[in-house]
C-alpha cells in the first residue's frame, strides 16, 4: 500500500504502476459531466477558472447530499469515459495530474497522460457509502447551481484507490481481464 499526499508531482506519479494500491491524503476536487464542460468552455473563452487544477486530482463523483451532522452523502466514482472529450485539454492546459473514476479511457486521454505525466486511479464503483467515510471535509467551491455536479473541494484521509492506468500507459483492465478470459 502506497500513501500519497496532494498536490502531486511528476516524481510521485512516475513511481506509480498500474495495479498499485494507493491511499490518497489531502485535498482533491470533484468534477463530472457539466463541470467539465464549463471548465473547458471557460478556458476556451479566455476567462478565469474557478479552481487551480495544477498538480491536483479530480474525482469523478456527484455525491448524495450530506445528512445533518455528516460531511457528505454516498460518494463513489462515476464512469470516467464521459469526461474523455474534455480531459486531454484539462491535463495539457490546466496541469491536472490525477483522476479518480471507473472504467476505461480513450487513447487520446492516455496519450495526454503519458506526455504530461498524469495518472488515472480507480475507486470501487458502487461503494458509495464506504468511500464517503474517508472524506473528512467537503465544501462547494464552484458551480453550485449544478447541484450534485457542482465542484467540491474534498479533504480525504487514506482514500483507497488502485492505479488503473499509469503514466507509461500500462492498463490494469487489459492485464486483469486477459488473465481470466476463456473466450476465443
Amino acid at each position: 500500500m502506497i500513501k500519497i499526499t496532494t498536490p502531486l508531482t511528476a516524481e510521485v506519479i512516475k513511481d506509480l504502476k498500474a495495479g498499485d494500491q494507493v491511499l490518497i491524503n489531502g485535498v482533491i476536487y470533484t468534477g463530472r459531466d457539466a463541470a467539465h464542460r464549463r471548465l473547458v468552455e471557460t478556458y476556451k473563452a479566455g476567462k478565469e477558472l474557478p479552481v487551480d487544477l495544477k498538480d491536483q486530482i479530480i474525482y469523478y463523483v456527484g455525491p448524495c447530499p450530506a445528512k445533518p451532522g455528516k460531511v457528505i452523502g454516498a460518494a463513489g466514482p462515476t464512469t470516467s469515459g464521459r469526461m474523455d472529450a474534455y480531459t486531454p485539454l484539462i491535463i495539457e492546459k490546466m496541469g491536472l495530474r490525477g483522476m479518480i473514476g471507473k472504467g476505461g479511457r480513450t487513447p487520446e486521454v492516455i496519450e495526454a497522460m503519458k506526455e504530461h505525466t498524469a495518472v488515472y486511479f480507480l475507486a470501487v464503483g458502487g461503494a458509495g457509502a464506504l468511500l464517503a467515510q474517508r472524506i473528512k471535509k467537503a465544501e462547494i467551491i464552484a458551480y453550485e447551481d449544478l447541484g450534485p455536479e457542482a465542484i467540491y473541494r474534498l479533504e480525504v484521509e487514506d482514500f483507497p484507490v488502485v492505479v488503473g492506468i499509469d503514466c507509461y500507459g500500462n492498463n490494469l483492465y487489459q492485464v486483469g481481464q486477459a488473465k481470466y478470459r476463456k473466450l476465443a
Binding site: 452523502g73 454516498a74 457509502a129 467515510q133 486483469g176
Partner: peptide, 29 residues
Amino acid sequence: SPLARDLIKLLQENARLAVETNEAICQDT
C-alpha cells in the same frame, strides 16, 4: 481471482454499512 473476491467482499461491506448508517448504497440513486 483473489482481487475480485476482495472486491465482492467490499461491496458486501458497503451494503452492510449502507443499512447501518441509513446511507445510500451508491451515490447514483
